[in-house]
Amino acid sequence: MKKGLLLIVIFLTLGLLLHTLPSVGQESEEEAEYPTYPIIFTKPLKAVLFEHKVHVEEAGLSCEDCHEDIFPMEAGATQENKDFNMQALYNGKYCGACHDGETAFASNTRCATCHIGVMGWKRLTGKEKGEKEE
């Protein structure tokens, strides 16, 4: 009887340990893969949202597909370029490398998919929270 109880206790402790340990490992692994925070471009206008998650998990891209030929690793660095605009995209630069209507939806369609506007920017950055009326 006592043996049984002891076995149950051992099982429980082992189970608890094994349950928590690998999940910790998984999380850190995921974190290392790509940034989970949103990349928000605010130049030349507010604002464009880029999410690594969508591009990695849904589009199946790897880091090397964009970095560092099309975009440098530093988040938001590209917006300092003078030609970071829609015309450049139509010419196949930046996002336009894939968003050409064949690889991914064309840059001159579905504008508000990436453009989140001043409203979206305020929502994400928590600016003027008290002033905002919803």
Partner: peptide, 9 residues
């Protein structure tokens, strides 16, 4: 409307 990106310019 489908071209609006809420840049608020």
């Amino acid at each position: 409307v489908d071209r609006c990106i809420d840049c608020e310019r």
